[in-house]
């Protein structure tokens, strides 16, 4: 069997979706659930635009088969609607075209949750996983710090 109906938890809801084993998580989320927050940017794990949170950690959804995520807790950008980090991105002008933004927000949110004490090196290490071509890096850093400060 090269495909089947699989069960997913996405943004707190349950989905029964027919998938091919060869489908990536990104392809399934975008194509079959209506959540388009994860953006395809390279399909190669290089840009981070498709980052989602799986069981509390960031994952590039183009690098994960959907079958691997079956039964796991998945959050996309839509699941962070109204979050502090999302508001901070708006407040600090932390985007221009906005295409990379959901991926950054997922990455930042996980960093805030897992490492509220994150130092400069940790932040560099984490944020190097994504690419912002408009280059709002300064502003993204400010937005992230503003939320980290509240969590310390």
């Amino acid at each position: 069997m090269t495909g089947r109906a699989a069960h997913f938890h996405i943004n707190g809801e349950e989905y029964n979706i027919y998938i091919r084993n060869a489908d990536t998580l990104l392809y399934v989320i975008r194509g079959k659930t209506g959540f388009t927050g994860a953006k395809p940017g390279c399909l190669n794990g290089d840009c981070g635009a498709c980052t989602v949170i799986v069981n509390g950690w960031p994952v590039k959804s183009c690098l994960m088969l959907a079958v691997e995520a079956e039964g796991e807790e998945i959050i996309t950008a839509e699941g962070l609607h109204g979050s502090e980090i999302q508001k901070a991105f708006v407040k600090y002008f932390a985007f221009q075209c906005g295409y990379c933004t959901p991926g950054y927000i997922m990455n930042c949110q996980t960093l805030i949750t897992q490492y509220p004490e994150a130092d400069r090196n940790k932040i560099k290490e984490w944020l190097d996983s994504n690419i912002c071509r408009c280059t709002s890096y300064e502003e993204i850093e400010q937005a992230l710090y503003s939320v980290l400060r509240q969590h310390r």
Binding site: G41, C42, N44, G45, D46, C47, K124, E125, L127, D128, N130, I131, C132, R133, T135, Y137, E138, I140, E141
Partner: peptide
């Protein structure tokens, strides 16, 4: 022809 070999500026390089 990929972003891992054609590399825009990353965060730590700003």
């Amino acid at each position: 022809p990929q972003l891992r070999t054609y590399r825009p500026l990353h965060f730590s390089e700003k």
